[in-house]
Design a binder for these strands. Structure first.
Lengths: 230, 230
DNA sequence: GTCAAATTTTTTGTATACAAGATGGAAATT
DNA sequence: AATTTCCATCTTGTATACAAAAAATTTGAC
């Protein structure tokens, strides 16, 4: 047999049922179908997905690890949406991780990546002009993903992506505030400028302010949380 | 302002077998009993722990999530020790997370905590004088744990603790270098001084230098890795 | 009628049974 | 002899069966 048959990270491979269920449940929780505190019944889910309890349990354990649900031994698993305090904490950590990314990237970033950042920003601009929220989110994500990558630290990149995904639904809420999009764009440009100058500290400060929840953003987040909770 | 009172590891709660197996396996991997790349056979482990495959599988999935093993679908799970590059990356992230903790703590830390830091440092000093490595590690951990807590950000605290635990065995290697302990102590004191002055940036810089792997520390880490690999 | 103890029911955790994919080697073909 | 194909075996993934712990309900005493 050929040694080159090393299946390294083929993401699209046929995954097991448990994986699919985990993804599906994650979506349902993040999208709010299962409210905070709701119990996730194993047998119900098994029936719903037309599988046995085994893959359902596996999926639930995965969600438990990633923090979306809480598993109380011999009691069951419950949806655990972060409250206002925890959300602020998570955004604060996100800000710090991104600041670290930016600081490291300032001295490591490639010209190609800088140009990619400009492209992503231009597309963001277009999306803002076209009132295309989805397009904006997509290019915004690309912008941040490039930054993580350019930190030159693969582990940091993964951690950033993990938290970014976790906060995605709340970021969406947050940006809905009128007038935030142009300001957000200006911040993006300031970040790129700092990176072009190779000024890590400036880039870190800029992105920290970009991500952190403060001032008006705080009130908007609280308002949207209230709205989502009912 | 106390955080939500959620069930954080009630000591006496009898945990399920899968949890105990996960802890046991984690220890075995970190301590090096299972080398990098080794396959963890479900039935073997089941026999070894005298349980069925079910709790073993649950434990393995947990380890897979925390990154200690890699699970290749329909192939098995394999021990995945971080290589030199990944280790450096992890230490870099640890340094940034701790720097963030320190920066935030500078404006939020309580007098009580400052005094606790002094106590931990004194005990570290004593341990160094007595050549008591274990004592040093214990008090060092306490020192850092206090810092995380004083960041005032529970999420950040948890993330720091998670990475700290993951890096524990390598930190141990690293500190074995002759002369590192006194220097490490001096760094601790500089951190406390910065915190007392409320100078977040200084504290961040100090702890970043304290945690990062650079200069001599780099060579020691590489040497100990080589030694551990054979 | 209220409260409490006991029993029933439900649900989680574990064991075992079964199915499908992967591994390795032998047989067959070139 | 080398390579390919096929088959036996082993391992993982899923289903089902069973055990134990919690929740719910009934029963009984006051």
């Amino acid at each position: 047999m050929r040694a080159e048959n090393r299946c390294v990270y083929v993401s699209g491979m046929d995954r097991k049922r448990a994986d699919l269920i985990a993804d599906e449940l994650e979506g349902l929780i993040l999208e709010g179908t299962y409210k905070d505190g709701a119990r996730l019944d194993e047998v119900q889910l098994a029936e719903r997905f037309e599988v046995s309890r085994t893959p359902v349990r596996e999926a639930l354990q995965r969600l438990s690890q990633s923090g979306l649900v809480e598993q109380i031994p011999r009691r069951g698993v419950f949806v655990r949406q972060p409250g206002p305090v925890e959300l602020l904490e998570m955004f604060e950590v996100m800000a710090e991780l991104e600041a670290a990314s930016a600081r490291l990237a300032a001295s490591r970033i490639s010209d190609q990546a800088l140009s990619d950042l400009h492209v992503a920003n231009s597309r963001c601009d277009e999306a803002v002009a076209a009132q295309d929220a989805d397009g904006y989110y997509l290019e915004n994500e690309r912008f941040h993903a490039i930054l993580y990558r350019q930190s030159g630290n693969g582990f940091l990149e993964q951690e950033c992506l993990r938290l970014y995904r976790r906060l995605q639904p709340f970021r969406r809420m947050q940006l809905r505030a009128r007038g935030r999009l142009p300001q957000s764009m200006a911040e993006h440009k300031a970040i790129v400028t700092a990176l072009e100058k190779g000024d890590g500290e400036a880039a870190a400060v800029a992105i920290r302010g970009h991500v952190a929840v403060q001032g008006e953003k705080f009130h908007h987040l609280m308002a949207s949380l209230k709205h989502a909770a009912e």
